[in-house]
Amino acid sequence: MPEKTRPQILVTGAAGALAQQVINKLSDTCDIVAVDFREQVDLGAKVPSYCIDFNKRVFEDLFRKYQFDGVIHLGRVQSSELNRMRRYNANVLGTQKLLDLSHKYGIKRVIVLSTYHVYGAVAYNPALIDECAPLKSAGLSADLVDSVELENLANLYLWRYPELNITILRACNIVGPGVRNTMSRLLSSKAAPVLAGFSPMMQFIHIDDMADAITLAWQKTTKGVFNVAPHDWVAYQQALKLCGCTRIPIVSVPPVLPKTIAKILRLRSFPHYLLAFFKYPVVIDGRTFAKEFNFTPKRSLTEIFGYYRDNK
């Protein structure tokens, strides 16, 4: 077998726009293998791409075939995708399989994408939430249990197997071209629901900046847990206004009413288990990551909202 001259990286979640951005940024200096359990994507002749369920035995064949130096795990299924059981299987059991194989095959660098949702949205959240804050989402919504358990797994392997050099990135709302998450669907819609009387502060990071953050994390082996967010924020209803969205008020009391309305109207862009995030602020402190990895977002809120306003 010829000697490797460039690092070989397994990137999960290849069907997503963020993973494809990361692959493009790293492909000049690394050999990339892409995988997604949802679909197989064509990423060009230089990037082998596979559609494989992480929980199937055939997934281990990739580790036997390629000598991976690192894993960038971007394949977390969002809260708005699939049903609760399938999300749990993908996010928790799939991540456990991925980390077990990483340990078994001597991987030296693992990056795991998480979400600020793990902190939970409650009225008494601090103005800026740092990485030491408790993860309250699991106790607030059963639909967010898998997000917290994914993180707990990554933290367990971080301390049990320090040689994996695991870095966990808790990102704020990732938005921009190609992003298909809950927040991006809201900002791109002509009319978006809001909870009457509430407009919590929110943070947004452009997909290009998030891809840069992941690339920087790969280039510097600093393990640990980091928030990734710009040091600015805006009220949710103001964000909708700047994106050219018509705001549709939904009454918020009694608490069961907005959940019932969201279910009846099938508002996929306004899932009932995320309603607390449209009521209470969850503003995370990204300064530790910015300092450690010399990261500064390039895309302003004006540019982010301008994209959604101009592409209605």
Rank of each mutant, 00 (worst) to 15 (best):
E163V: 01
F278K: 06
D36N: 01
T12W: 03
R86I: 15
A196V: 02
D36P: 00
P281Q: 06
F37Q: 09
L275M: 12
N152K: 04
I168M: 00
Q203F: 01
D69Q: 01
L242K: 14
K104H: 06
Q8W: 04
R309Q: 11
G75V: 01
A191P: 06
S184W: 02
L186T: 13
A14H: 00
I9M: 13
G44H: 03
S300C: 07
M85N: 08
L99C: 00
R170M: 08
K190I: 11
K220A: 03
D208P: 04
N311E: 00
S188H: 05
D143H: 12
L216Q: 07
K259R: 13
P254F: 06
K223I: 07
K259Y: 06
L43T: 04
E60K: 02
L144T: 10
L135N: 10
V47A: 08
P258L: 02
V175F: 10
D212Q: 06
P134V: 10
A17W: 10
L135Q: 13
R309M: 06
L240Q: 15
L82M: 15
K108T: 03
L113M: 13
P271E: 12
G197H: 02
R287M: 01
G75S: 06
R287V: 01
C245W: 05
V175P: 15
V234M: 02
E81M: 14
R109S: 01
A121Y: 09
A171Q: 05
A19W: 01
A239N: 11
N24F: 11
C245K: 12
I168L: 05
H231K: 08
V22A: 08
G139H: 05
H206R: 10
I214C: 03
L301F: 08
V179P: 03
G306N: 11
Y119W: 04
F277G: 10
G176Q: 11
G16P: 05
V283F: 00
D208M: 06
I166R: 05
Y116A: 15
K223H: 12
S184M: 01
L82N: 08
C245G: 10
I207A: 06
R170V: 07
V92F: 02
P2H: 15
T5P: 15
I214A: 03
S147H: 07
C243P: 13
R299A: 09
K25D: 13
G306T: 00
F54G: 09
A127L: 03
D42M: 04
Q78M: 06
K46T: 05
C172Q: 09
